[in-house]
Structures are given as structure tokens and as C-alpha cells.
């Protein structure tokens, strides 16, 4: 713990990087997974393609994806994009299923009632389907966020920033305290992000808490 207080500025610096490297992929992945999840919820054929594909993406080790990304998209080896792209891919792979399940679980009679009242498709999606799918979607988002925050550290193995740098530096200099600092930072960040999403979910879906 002493390392954190003695190196306060450095700690904040890596925290900021870590946060950026994990939050950007969550947002990007979430945005991409909504149309894809919607598509999967509507079409069994899309499910047949998207779900196995997502499963295979998961089996690729994060370190490998981080290493391969610059070769594939032509970025420099130390570009932050090399972490952001793989983590976005993982987020999409995880969230497609959550979004598709959540949308499929919207009660059919509610959708029918909305149609009967004359909602146009886009408006119905934004004001009826999507809000009702939020609880399940947010549950998926929480898992994706926590796993992203934990996975960003892997980037340090190829020299990228975030708490992972504290791990590799601590390893090379035999500094347990430094590694622990990074570990604590990661867990605290994950718990805070998870709590924040939980809170946002509750505020956005007040109806889910009444009754029962």
C-alpha cells in the first residue's frame, strides 16, 4: 500500500490510462452490439451466424489479439488502439447475446399492444422494447465492464499503459508492493464501475424494483 502514497502522481496517471483503455471499448462495444443484438433477436439465421462467431472470438487469447491487431490494422505496436480494438471485439462478442436475449424476452403482448396503438418501428424500439430490455442488457454490460477492466492489464505485457505497467515493472524490479498497488487499483476500479452501472440501471428502470 505504501507504494500508492509514495507515488501518488504516477498512480493517478496509470489509473487515468487504465480507465480510458477500458471505458472506451465498453462504450464502443455496447453501441455496436445494440444493432447486432437486435438483428439476432429478430432473425434465427443471424443468431446462427453471430453466436458461434462470438464464441470463437472469445477463445482467442487477449494477449494474442493485442499482439496481432497492429499487424492487421497497420498501427504502431505501442498504439493504445491495439488494446481498444481487441477489447471492443470482446465486448461486442459478450454483449450481442445479452442484448439479443434481453430483446427476445420483451413480452409479446406488450409489443403487440404498442403496435396496435400505432407506434412506428423505430419509436417503438426506442421507447418500448429497449427500455424493457435494459435490466438484462445492463447485467451483461456489468460483466463486460468488469472483465475489460481486468483484461486491460494484459496490454502491459507488450508495453502498453495502465495498471499492467505496475505489474511488469514490479516483476522486473522484484517490487511486490508495486504489483499489489496495481492489483488493488484494478479491483477498486472494477467494483466502482460495477456499482455505478448498477446504480444507473436502477435509476433507468424504476419499474423493475416495485412489487415482489
Amino acid at each position: 500500500m505504501t507504494w500508492i502514497f509514495e507515488n501518488w502522481e504516477r498512480f493517478w496517471e496509470v489509473t487515468a490510462v487504465h480507465l480510458r483503455l477500458s471505458v472506451v471499448p465498453v462504450l464502443a462495444g455496447f453501441a455496436l452490439s445494440i444493432p447486432l443484438g437486435w438483428w439476432a433477436s429478430r432473425s434465427p439465421k443471424a443468431r446462427l451466424v453471430l453466436f458461434p462467431f462470438a464464441n470463437v472470438l472469445f477463445t482467442i487469447p487477449s494477449i494474442a489479439l493485442i499482439v496481432i491487431t497492429p499487424v492487421l490494422i497497420g498501427t504502431k505496436i505501442l498504439d493504445e488502439i491495439n488494446v481498444i480494438v481487441p477489447l471492443t471485439v470482446y465486448t461486442v462478442a459478450l454483449m450481442i447475446r445479452s442484448v439479443a436475449d434481453a430483446l427476445s424476452a420483451v413480452p409479446g403482448n406488450v409489443v403487440a399492444a404498442a403496435n396496435a396503438m400505432g407506434f412506428r418501428p423505430l419509436r417503438r424500439f426506442l421507447t418500448v422494447d429497449f427500455p424493457l430490455a435494459l435490466p438484462v442488457t445492463i447485467a451483461g454490460l456489468r460483466v463486460a465492464t468488469v472483465s475489460n477492466i481486468s483484461m486491460v492489464s494484459v496490454g502491459a505485457l507488450v508495453g502498453l499503459g495502465g495498471y499492467g505497467q505496475l505489474f511488469t515493472e514490479g516483476y522486473q524490479t522484484d517490487n511486490t508492493d508495486k504489483v499489489l498497488a496495481g492489483l488493488i487499483g484494478t479491483v477498486v476500479l472494477a467494483v466502482l464501475a460495477d456499482g455505478l452501472l448498477l446504480l444507473i440501471g436502477r435509476l433507468l428502470t424504476p419499474w423493475a424494483r416495485v412489487g415482489r
Binding site: 460483466v143 468488469v146 472483465s147 477492466i149 481486468s150 483484461m151 492489464s153 494484459v154 502491459a156 505485457l157 495498471y163 499492467g164 505489474f167 511488469t168 514490479g170 516483476y171 522484484d174 511486490t176 504489483v179 499489489l180 496495481g182 492489483l183 484494478t186 479491483v187 472494477a190 467494483v191 460495477d194
Partner: peptide
């Protein structure tokens, strides 16, 4: 479960190696 999920595997590996 949630706490363990947040644990970065790299850090655990390095810590145990150091110890």
C-alpha cells in the same frame, strides 16, 4: 465471484512468482 472476476490474472501470477 464478482470480486474474483475483477482480479487481474497477470497480477496474481506475478505476485505468486515474487512470493
Amino acid at each position: 465471484s464478482n470480486a474474483l472476476r475483477a482480479l487481474p490474472t497477470t497480477a496474481v501470477l506475478i505476485l505468486v512468482v515474487l512470493w
